[in-house]
Every structure is written in C-alpha cells, then in structure tokens.
Design a protein around this nucleic acid. Sequence first.
DNA 1: CTGAGACGGGG
DNA 2: GGGTACGTCTCAG
Length: 810
Amino acid sequence: MKYKLCLLDIDYIIEGGKAVIRIFGRTAEGKSAVLIDRNVEPWFLVLSDNIGETEKSLENLKGEGFSIQRVEKETREYLGEKVDFLKAFTKFPGEVRTAREKVRTLPGVKGVFEADILFTHRYILDNSLRPMGMLEVEAEEVEKPEKFELDLVLEARGSPKYIEGDIPKLNIMSFDIEASNPKGMPNADKDPIIMMSVASDSEEKVISQKKPDGSQKYVEDAKDEAGILKRFEEIIREQDVDILAAYNSDNFDFPYIRDRAEKLNHELNIGRAGGAVRFKSRGRYSAAESRGRIHADLFHYVTIILRGALGQINSRSLKSVAEKFLPEDSRKKDLDWRKMSEYWEKGGEELKELFDYSMADATVTKKLADLFMPREYELSRLVRVPLFDAMRTTYGRLVENYLMWNAIERGLVIPNRPEQEEMGERAAIGAIEGAYVKEPEKGMHENIAVMDFKSLYPSIIISHNIDASTVNCDCCKGKAEKVEDLGTWMCTKSEGLMPIVLKNILNERNELKKKMKELEKNSKEYQTLDNRQYSLKILANSAYGYLAFRGSRWYTREGGSTTTALGRMYTHKIIDTAEDFGLRSIYGDTDSLFVVSEKGDVEGKVKKFLKKINSELPGVMELEFEGVYKRGIFVSKKRYAMIDEKGDTLIKGLEFVRRDWSPIAKKTQKEVIDSILEDGNSEKAFEIVRDTIRKIKNREITKEDVVVYTQLTRPLDKYKVTAPHIKVATDMKNRGEEVVTGTSVGYIITEGGGSISERAQQVDEVDVKKIDRKYYVENQIIPAVSRVMEALGYGKEDLLGKKQSTLEGF
DNA sequence: CTGAGACGGGG
DNA sequence: GGGTACGTCTCAG
C-alpha cells in the first residue's frame, strides 16, 4: 500500500546486523507514524589515477573496524571535467570514516570524497527527499514495538520519494519549568522543579507541587516533583506532540529536567521511540534531542535568524522578543527572580502570581512558536536538513547544505570539508578587507533619507560570476578583465555553482513575491509563501559569508575579497553620484546610504537620484528607497540612533544590555538617547547626565542603583584572576556562606585604596556612605553616555563639570 | 599591551 | 552518530 508522510525527523539504528533508517512524521491523514527502511547502504567515492588497480584492491578490502562490501563506478564532474569515480559500499555508516583513512593510502588513490556526510543526510540526498515536505512510499504496516508512542509503524517496500503538497497540521506544545534559588540560578543538585507549564492549541496548564485554591483552574496538583514530570510526559503523549517548543531549553530546561529526573530515579520518556532526551554535543553548547518529536528551542531562531533584525546589541530575552513580535495583550509577566522562593513558600496571593507567571511563559512561548516555526519548516525544506538541525545551525552551514544538494543535482562531486589544520591555516591569514563604512558626520541630523542596495552581495556574486571554480581560473588567465586594486579575475567561459544557485534563489523569490500579490494577506497560503521567500532571502544573504568561511567546502578567499572590493566600489559610486543631486551623505555602511538635503525636499531628490543610478547599475543590481527619518544622532561607525515620523526608534550599537553594568548607568544612558531623539535637544541630554552625576556626588542614590550582579561560572578555586565578583565571592565563603557555580554575586565598589576588585564588597556589607562615587561616575556613567555626548560636542570635562569647576571634591 | 573571564539566555 | 561552531567587552597583570 502507498503511504504519504511528512518527514519530520530521521535517524538510523543498527538492527539485525544492518543499518536501518527511521523516518518519523505524520501521514497525510494526520496519523503519527514511523517509516522503517532496511534497504540502505552507506558509501563513499574514491578518485584514482589507476582505476582498475584501485578497484581490485578495494574489492573485499578489510581493515580494522571496516570492510568494503562491493564497488561500483560512478561518473561525476570534478574540477570542470567528467571523471570516473569508484563508489565503495560499507555495511555500517560508522565504517565509512575508518575506511576513508585506509583507502587514502592505497596506491593510485588521489582522493576520497563524500565520506564526510552524515548518513541520514546522505539518505535524504540520495532519495531527493525534503524534510518538512511530503514523501510517498510503498510500505506495509507492521506491529508496533511496545515502547513506540505513535499510531503507525511502516516497513518500506520501496524507496520513498518526494511529492508536492502541504504537510498535515503539526501539534505544537510549548513548556517551561520553574525552579528557584534566591542566591542565583537554581542548582539542580538541590533546588527542585516547583512547577511546569504547558500550552498547546487545546490545553494550557500549570502542573505544580502545590495545590492552588479554586480561582486558577489551569493549575493542576501533581503531589510531588516526580509527579510533575510524569504528568508532563503524559500530556505530551495525550496531545501526540510533534514540536516541543521552549526558550533556551537546550541550555537550561532540559539539562535541569535531566538532572532532577536522575536524582529522583525517574526514567524520562519524551520521544516517540522510547528513550530519554539525548544531549548532542555541539561545540559550545549541547542540544537536547527527543527522538521522533522535535525539541524546538526558539532561542536559536532568535540568535541565528533574527540576529539581523534584532542586532547584536538588543536583548534576546523571552520578554523583549515577545514585546517585539506579539500583540500587547499577550506578553510575558514580570517577576523578580529573587522573590520567587519567597512567593513559593508564602502561598496565597504571591503563589497565585507565581502560577500566572509560569502560565504566561508557556503561552507566550507557544505564540512565538506558532509565528517562528513555520519559517523554520521552510528553511529546513529548502536546504534539506532535518528540522532539529536546521534550526540550530549557522548561516554558513545552511548555505553549505543547499550547495551540496545543488551539486548533486548537477552531477558535481561535493568537495571535502577542510581538515582541522587547513581550517587553522585559513583562519591564521586573518580576515579579508570588509565593506566600506563611511565615517559618519557626527552629531544630530534631521530629515534623513535611507537607501539600501537590494541584496548587494548576492547580486555582485551573480553579476560578476564569483565562485570557487571561477575566481583566478587558469583558462582565462591574462584574458579576463581584472578587478581594480585586487587583480583578481573571473572565468568568462563557465558559470560557477554559487552564482547559478544564487540566481535560482533570487528568481524563485521573485516568483513567490509575484504569486503573493494575488493572494489574501492573512490567508494560510500567503503566510506559507511569505515564510518561503523569507528563507530564500536569508540564504541569499548568507552566501557571501560562506565564500571565505574557514570551514567552507567551496572555499575561495579571493572570491570573498573580490565581492567586498566590488561592494566598496559601488558604494563609493553612489555616494559620489548623490552629491550631484544635492544629497549630502552623512553615513553609509556596506549596502546602505544615509543622506540629507541642504535645501529642499529630501524625498523628492532621492527619488530622482534613484532613477538615475538604477539605470546605470549592471545586471540585477538595484538601489532601493528605505525610508525617511525625522531625526538621528550619529556617534561613530556602526553606532547611531534614529527616530521616524511615527516615533519609532532605531538604535544601533549604543545600548548596553549587559548585566555587568549598574542600573543607574543603564538608566541614564536610556534617558539620554530618548531625550535626544524625541526633543532634538542636546542641552537637555547634557542636563540629564549632569543631574545624575550631581545625585551620585550628593549621595542621593541607593545601593540598588549601583549594584552589579555577576555569575560564577566555575568553582571558586578555578579562577586565576581576581575579578571584583571573585573577591566578593571569596569574602562570602570566608564568612561561611555557600558559594557554588551559578551563584549570582552582587557587589558594589567602595571607597578606599587598592584595585577595583579589592574595593568590591558584598551588597549587605556596604555602608551607603562608602560607595565609591568617583568609580560610578567615571567607570559607569561616563562610559555609558560618553559616546553619545561626545558626538554632540560635549567632552568628558564638560560632563564632569571640571571646566566650570563646580563639581569637584571627590 | 595581552590574556583571562564574562556576557548572552534560562530562574 | 560519515561532523562542528561566537563576537565583544572589561579588568588584571
């Protein structure tokens, strides 16, 4: 019988002495299912200059931990020519790696290829499947193993193939845990999970160890902590959850749940094929995976995909992301973590507040998941990487996977990943010269028009045919035109993979945008297409970075530097041309230009200018009008703030969201920026700073204004350098207080002699009169506002009042 | 000036 | 698992 199935997740297991692929998903009819394919064989390619000889030595080759099963021939394009490769099959995926090392040493062998592709990915590529797309397969329903949590178990009787069509509705459920420790981050060794909240389309619940009074119907009593976990698992099964969404759960919630479960001797069961949550090490952090259900940590979406929209400076907390993306009535509640334990112990109204807070966390997360996940589906579909990985991977890897698919489609051999040593060498050469950033005209400006190049780097790569195979090619040496300053040239005979792929991406995106115009804006189809075009945009914009990325399979440092060199050239060109139209460029960065008009309407002039410049730009390149801003303050490259007619502000590179700044410094900074943008009055901003400094000087401040909290990230004795919080933590320990990893140490710098660290003291020990006012003025307030104030023409002396000599006496 | 260490985000 | 990850700041020395 034929089955249609959405490819949600994929893995392989070893069963009956063979590798077996398992595809988890949901059928077109909405049944949760697993498809088991036993007919799979791992393989890799061998390049040899004596193919007959190599074939003989490969056949029946056995080594430590591997044996070659059989050998075939396969033709692929390699370095621009059709070449015969040997395709060597092994029994287990794990053998490919060991076999590769041995085969490399065989006589005649020039290289081993495609031995560095994950087996599940190989399977997707070989069968032309799309994760988060539908597949069709001839299969047979078989009996469900006991531990499986799904409707159908299917055994493949043929190879699955991709088919067009919408995927069935997937069940998304969000969750959040609460645990607390008044001293800092909760510690899984001793702080229990006090409650968990979940939210899906049909259920919103808090499961807690405490029994609430009647008014909060969504709270359920689970008796004890193990009961909370059991109930959580039960709800996951009841709801047949496909996507389990949470925020920063790779790093916090799941490790915490794991540790607590272990302590309680509770065996976690969250996936669809039995087994607990597994932690995949991914360098800097680990990712929590439950097989068959996708654990979606939305924090990755925010850090990777929204990085551009949010900037590096803005907070990525659940609260601020919700504020930015959700309507006002559905936002997160506020709760001071220091009060959490107290509320929990106290009960009554405070406990109710805690339940509300927990519930809101899950509902907000669910709403964000509804918004973000469809975009992740499209990205996963596009680059053919399973959702779990696609949503955790970097731009570079997304581009890489998309290129891999496109290479295979075109019969090209996929280049190998660079080895560690090679990557080290690439990194050691240093960064390539980047984009042109015009030094801004410092200070305040009004009526600023902003223009952007539409997909600058992708259109340069396409228009100039930049690719690993085309830059400085042998065939056009001395014949092709050279890029000014750099002396690089690009092939004029054949088009590179990257330009071809990018052209397709941009074309497809334009097609989608055309189709979208005919659709109702809030229709489901429109949304899907919008998500699809957005993932194409992300991919196109990431392509440039991949050219000179040290881990790139299609590495071309010259290609990267040529792209930026051409970008700089175009930016200079538009700045010069704008002058002719009476537009003065006050700032420009990479692909954008900020202009003001000395006299007359700026928008009108810009429109005329754009018409002219776009008629001169080559190929697909285009400069677009972005908008007009009422006022802006420009501080330095990458640091500016603007406000539009509606009063919305755009702040780049000026805000501090770091915890290691004192509240008073953060508050003053915000007030200063807001005041300048809203009133356009630098004198008033100056007064705000002077006033704050005066207050500090006159001791009109509280300890809360100046306390800085810093976390311990390791045991105390592992620190080599005594930073302020380490000094305070040591004091605390000497007084007999418990100081462990995760403790949040609050400290205040006090007057006296010695280094800053020596003068740091624990909040409770500090006498308000002893606060080091000079430190807070000079190391906190001044740095926080000086960049902005200097751009307005105020030096540090002005701020400190030294010129008027009215504020001496520290 | 360099290197160590922290931040982010979770409570 | 056929594989791997950041970028930026401050303070001590």
